[in-house]
Design a binder for these strands. Structure first.
Length: 510
RNA sequence: GGCGGAGUAGCUCAGCGGUAGAGCAGCGGAAUCAUAAUCCGUAGGUCGGGGGUUCGAAUCCCUCCUCCGCUACCA
């Protein structure tokens, strides 16, 4: 038996300057679904998230809170770790940039770059925005501020530079050879046109603050936060020990999921650093969009920040997960609206899905002695529904392969719709008297279809899916994709089923 | 200024050379197994404006308008 395929997916590490909000939850959610899907599909998965804890902003924020940076950072980092529980995220590792394993990796990468003559000592003079962690040319400034509106300060200091300019052509070749390195497509175009526009060497060290990883052999300098942060993707695999099991198995990463605001760092700087160090770049960077709140841009000053904790408490964990993934094509911006959320909960989850299960399981409970019915010969309509169910997994693989999470859900709901139509067309409640044998065949076909749906919704709405699988008495070991399809492990007639209970309650007007 | 994308039913969007589509909302009906949940029917919208190519254009070309993203520059 050959080794299972692997899958390495990451979130960005979240900056501890901020508490977790819907944006963080959204990114990690997407990764969680992908990780769960791949695990159920038999792949060996590594799902990484964590926190980015260095930099001037953190140093300042800690000072304002009257704490030393490490204490401050411990505190905020914990909140991000707690988000995993809140949203039911299945991360395999949580990395912090203040951990020794990470510091060691960053310094090793730095040394590697120096060794390969990719870093040189120069002098930096220019405008720097602490808030953006970014430099701006004089010409970028708008009324003395960064184009983002952030305040800037004049910085003049010795600095190490990374020879980014030397990587313009290699990067362009790399993009050309990997046309799906960046998704969505429009982001790929942006990246390519940015690099075509010319790259200048990148300042990669600071002497103006201390809270960071010291430059090896020159402790006056602290390593640029992005070089520091991006390295987490390999430090979590044990870099610089490239012979380690984790590293060999999982690098290069299959996917970095990010928000669109940090695309340049991931699609330009990161592959440039890696190419310069002789390390293979990741396979894909997917940049998703932003959420607005009831049509309004989300900002702290507006006070309309969405706390994932509140969403989960208000609407439910699976409901929140479903809404975020279904409401908006993954990659586009979305609008969070209470009304839309309620519609998704009641229509998609309670009515279409939950009620399908409930009506079928109730009929089985009442008319089949609470056991999986014994089907007779299958009619064409039965086969058609089962064929649809069996064909779903390959279709989902395709959608998931390009991170079309919304499309995957759409495909599943097409089967749910077909199953509801089938119930009405077959009218098993009428068959109860006219043809009980036929009724049992219909109910078995439906139960089997629901089994497929429940297994396939596990990555998206894990808890509810499992509650449904409990009701179908599907053993833990059969709740995987290998148990689906024509050669799978169908429900066994005669199996006793627990009393049916709804898995997706309707949202009640409060 | 440059590059890219978008403007299609009330809303969100798909279609991308061959007599205008989906979901949601709305309207009418059927059914009654079920969380009053389902199913069926119903969309008369100059496909942003104008011009062109074609037997035929949301669909190709030109042009204009509006919006969005990336990027550059002037000051």
């Amino acid at each position: 038996m050959s080794a299972p395929e692997t899958y390495y997916v990451t979130t960005p590490i979240y900056y501890v300057n901020d508490s977790p909000h819907i944006g963080h939850a959204y990114t990690t959610l997407a990764c969680d679904v992908l990780a769960r899907f791949m695990r159920l599909d038999g792949r060996r998965v590594r799902f990484l998230t964590g926190t980015d804890e260095h930099g001037q902003k953190v140093e300042k924020a800690a000072g304002e809170a009257g704490l030393d940076p490490q204490t401050f950072t411990d505190r905020v980092s914990r909140r991000f770790r707690e988000l995993l529980e809140v949203m039911d995220f299945s991360a395999d590792d949580f990395i912090r940039t203040t951990e020794p394993r990470h510091v060691r990796a960053v310094q090793a990468l730095w040394r590697k770059l120096v060794e390969r003559d990719q870093i040189y000592l120069g002098k930096y003079a220019g405008w720097y925005s602490v808030r953006d962690e970014s430099y701006y040319a004089e010409s970028d400034l708008v009324e003395g501020r960064a184009p983002t509106g952030a305040p800037v300060e004049w910085v003049e200091e010795p600095s190490y530079f990374f020879r980014l300019s030397a990587w313009q052509e290699p990067l362009l070749e790399f993009y050309e050879r990997h046309p799906d390195f960046v998704l969505p497509q429009s982001r790929y175009n942006e990246v390519v046109s940015f690099v075509r526009g010319g790259l200048t060497d990148l300042s990669v060290s600071r002497t103006t603050f201390r809270w960071g990883i010291p430059v090896p052999d020159d402790p006056d300098h602290v390593i640029y936060v992005w070089l520091d942060a991006l390295t987490n993707y390999i430090s979590a695999l044990g870099y610089p020990d490239t012979g380690s099991e984790l590293y060999r198995r999982f690098w290069p990463a299959d996917l970095h999921v990010i928000g669109k605001d940090i695309l340049r760092f991931h699609a330009v700087y990161w592959p440039a650093f890696l190419l310069a160090a002789g390390i293979e770049p990741p396979r894909r960077v997917f940049a998703h969009g932003w959420w607005t709140n009831e049509g309004q841009k989300i900002s702290k000053s507006l006070g309309n920040v969405i706390d994932p904790r509140v969403l989960v408490e208000t609407y439910g964990r699976d409901q929140t997960r479903y809404f975020l993934l279904r409401e908006v094509p993954f990659g586009q911006d979305g609008d969070f609206r209470h009304e839309a959320m309620v519609r998704r909960i009641n229509h998609d989850l309670a009515n279409d899905y939950g009620n399908l299960a409930q009506r079928v399981l109730s009929m089985i409970a009442r008319n089949c002695d609470g056991r999986v019915p014994e089907p007779g010969p299958l009619a064409a309509e039965d086969r058609a529904l089962l064929d649809h169910a069996h064909a779903l997994l390959p279709a989902l693989r395709e959608a998931i392969g390009v991170q079309a999470l919304h499309r995957a859900l759409e495909l599943i709901w097409e089967l749910i719709g077909a199953a509801n139509r089938y119930v009405d067309a077959q009218a098993p409640w009428a068959l109860r008297k006219s043809d009980p044998g036929r009724m049992r065949t219909v109910l078995w076909t439906l139960a089997e279809t629901i089994r497929h749906v429940a297994v396939l919704t596990r990555p998206f709405v894990p808890a509810a899916s499992d509650r449904l699988l409990d009701q179908l008495a599907v053993p833990e070991t059969d709740r995987v994709f290998a148990a689906l399809g024509a050669g799978g492990r169908p429900l066994l007639p005669g199996t006793a089923l627990p009393h049916p209970r709804g898995v997706f309650p309707r949202w009640q007007q409060e």
